[in-house]
Design a protein around this nucleic acid. Structure first.
Length: 350
DNA sequence: AAGTACGACAACCGCTGCACC
DNA sequence: GGGTGCAGCGGTTGTCGTACT
């Protein structure tokens, strides 16, 4: 590549944007669309590099951005998708349509990462930290837990591989849906205002078609999604590439069911009591699991976890708070699997 | 009241992938 | 097929506001 950085040019402004600059950018894009970002600053009368303009637009000025506090459900979605996708913020952002990747990334780094770390969960791998594992109980329990972690990792890798494959299939077919002749070619949400709006509509249609938007309402049994997806998709009109899409759907459902099987097998390996809907745990497929929410989002958990850490260090018997910690981790992992089971492996991001 | 530490978020930088020539 | 330019992505840094000493 070896090209010079676009912002090295003398005379280009850096740093925080002024309201006047925002106004110029906004007005220009509303009138003309962004076109070439590189050429935009000169045309819009801005002393900024194109990259800076693009960032400002996509992260701040775009009209379809939701700002402010993240909801409980958004937090949960981020955590769970991060467990599956890692630091692929743009991919995660596609599941939170009104949030930007930058915002999600910042929120993760400033809030969620710390919270997971506090809980003794590695925020990178989402695995319980090894010292926590080793300090809980006898070796047999640790070995079982580690074996489940290995199972999870294996499933996760399989998921990634499959998602990449499906991505290729679907991006090909979905691109045609998103960009019929006359539409902007960019599939990102950073297109011109009109294109962006059209894409947003399409995205909503997609979410509706795939049942993703319903997942949070607890109706995300895979069979239901598939059926509704097919119906809704037909309703979208153009069906040129439907076979590809449907094939992808079939693949993803066979995958999710295999993960479902694994979740069940893990359930068998771990104590089923902790996974059953006592008062808080719900069926596989329901993303809004209170058990999980409590585990990750309740501040009191932080306290109990730090307490349990102390306990388990002191208590090699491990049947006290240490086992609570163990149970919590089980719930955590199963919840992620549940999300995978109910998530749109057929979403536009893949 | 002044100085310092820290958290939150906006913006920048460098790399990568892709399209085009 | 290789070179070039562009947009997008993710990591990092900078800036600002607020709490604390």
């Amino acid at each position: 590549m070896g090209r010079s950085p676009c912002c090295d040019k003398v005379g280009l402004k850096k740093g925080p944007w002024t309201p006047e600059e925002d106004q110029k950018l906004l007005v220009y894009i509303e009138e003309h669309g962004h076109g070439s970002w590189r050429a935009l600053p000169a045309k819009a009368g801005l002393q900024r590099c194109g990259k800076s303009c693009r960032l400002r637009w996509t992260n701040y000025l775009r009209p379809d951005i939701k700002r402010g506090k993240f909801s409980l459900q958004e937090e949960q979605t981020i955590i769970q998708l991060h467990a599956l996708l890692g630091n692929r913020w743009s991919a995660i952002a596609t599941h939170l349509p009104k949030r930007t990747d930058n915002e999600i990334k910042n929120y993760w780094n400033t809030h969620l990462k710390k919270r997971l770390a506090k809980m003794g969960i590695d925020p990178i791998t989402h695995k319980p930290k090894s010292d926590a594992l080793l300090s809980t109980d006898g070796q047999s329990k640790n070995a079982a837990n580690l074996s489940h972690m290995a199972q999870w990792e294996s499933a996760r890798l399989e998921a990634e591989a499959r998602l990449v494959r499906e991505s290729k299939i679907r991006s090909h077919s979905f691109q045609h849906q998103l960009n019929p002749p006359g539409f902007a070619s960019s599939a990102s949400a950073s297109g011109s205002t009109s294109a962006s709006a059209a894409q947003l509509v399409n995205k909503t249609a997609w979410n509706s078609a795939t049942g993703w938007s319903k997942s949070s309402e607890g109706s995300s049994q895979t069979g239901i999604i598939k059926e509704e997806g097919e119906q809704e998709w037909k309703g979208l009109g153009s069906s040129t590439n439907l076979p590809d899409y449907k094939e992808g759907m079939e693949n993803s459902f066979s995958f999710t069911s295999s993960l479902h099987d694994m979740a069940i097998s893990m359930e068998g390996g771990w104590t089923p009591e902790s996974l059953r809907p006592s008062s808080s745990h719900v069926n596989v497929g329901n993303v809004m699991e209170e058990g999980f929410t409590n585990l990750l989002l309740d501040d009191s958990i932080d306290r109990s976890l730090s307490d349990s850490g102390k306990e388990s260090d002191e208590n090699s018997g491990g049947s006290g708070d240490g086992s609570d910690y163990y149970e919590d981790n089980k719930n955590y992992w199963n919840s992620i699997l549940n999300l995978v089971n109910s998530s749109p492996s057929d979403s536009p991001m893949f």
